[in-house]
Design a protein around this nucleic acid. Structure first.
Length: 294
DNA sequence: TACATTTGACCTGC
DNA sequence: GCAGGTCAAATGTA
């Protein structure tokens, strides 16, 4: 099968999964309308509506960019967690080559605050440096804190739509160390879809709202259920899939690069993994799939 | 000149 | 109403 055929097959599968997900969310929404709070009290109508809309939007996107005419805002924030009032569509700036900036039509400070469920990770480090390029966009004095908090966004926010941000604050009890909170995963080209906290950090204090539940029983994860989603991965001997096991000591992206897979192949596999992951079929320990990538 | 940082304004969510 | 997060004009720097 040629590359186009594979892509079509994957896209079709993605489309079906998105629509199925939307259908499932709609069913749950229907149930919730009779009982406004979910059985465990955690799922609200608004959240389900958002899930339905997101699945439909992603499905429409898969059918083609022109299919999704849900708004005049152009490419939507795919993860749906940052629907800025500030228009996030991109427009060519004739004065700045192909650099793209969001079109702003509202007053400054107009934005949608990230949901508290946004993936975050907190580290303490003696340096604020890490492997990514960050651009400072703000600084605030925090109540009851001796030191101000600095806000950074990924340098590739506008040219690649990367939504990763971090907040850095000097620690009161040890001003030589920085308390850094990473919010969202990088989706810029440098390291697509990998969670990438600084390797220089002394330790990771805590991880909050991680979208992927880490396995507690060791370093491997059974992936039998994934076979229907990632056929080409099954052909990669180094993944150890013949035994139905996945070695988590190496993050999948690095492994695929090492195996010589092309960027587009890697992206396709990541998309498959995301689908499997969203259905609860799959989980990584130190690897996080962020739906915002799509 | 292009890009990064600073800083006050303004918005959102609690 | 307040604290915190983000925006964007002004300013700095290479």
């Amino acid at each position: 099968m040629d590359a186009t055929g594979i892509c079509n097959q994957i896209d079709k599968r993605k489309l079906m999964m998105e629509l199925a997900q939307g259908q499932e969310s709609a069913r749950r929404l229907q149930a919730l309308l009779q009982n406004p709070v979910g059985e465990d009290g955690s799922e609200l109508v608004g959240q389900l509506v958002e899930k339905v809309l997101r699945s439909l939007e992603l499905g429409l996107d898969l059918l083609g960019p022109s299919s999704n005419q849900t708004g005049e805002n152009g490419p939507r924030s795919p993860g749906g967690e940052q629907h800025q009032v500030t228009d996030f569509s991109f427009e060519e700036d004739p004065d700045k080559g192909d650099k793209k900036r969001p079109v702003t039509r509202d007053k400054r400070g107009c934005y949608k605050r990230r949901k508290s469920s946004q993936t975050t990770r907190v580290t303490v480090s003696s340096t604020t440096e890490d492997d990514h390029a960050w651009r400072k966009y703000g600084q605030k004095c925090i109540l009851n804190s001796k030191f101000p908090r600095s806000y950074f966004r990924c340098t590739h926010k506008y040219d690649q739509g990367c939504k990763a941000t971090k907040q850095v604050q000097m620690m009161e009890d040890d001003p030589c160390k920085y308390h850094t909170t990473y919010i969202g995963a990088h989706t810029c080209n440098r390291h697509p879809m990998t969670w990438d906290p600084p390797h220089t950090s002394d330790h990771v204090n805590e991880e909050i709202n991680d979208p992927v539940e880490a396995k507690s029983d060791g370093s491997t994860t059974t992936i039998d259920n994934l076979s229907g989603f990632c056929p080409s991965l099954l052909e990669k001997p180094a993944f150890g899939l013949q035994e139905g096991r996945f070695d988590q000591s190496e993050d999948p992206v690095s492994m695929m690069y090492r195996l010589g897979m092309k960027d587009e192949e890697i992206q396709s596999e990541m998309e498959c993994m995301l689908i499997g992951n969203s259905l609860g079929h799959y989980g990584f320990c130190d690897f996080h799939l962020d739906e915002s990538y799509f």
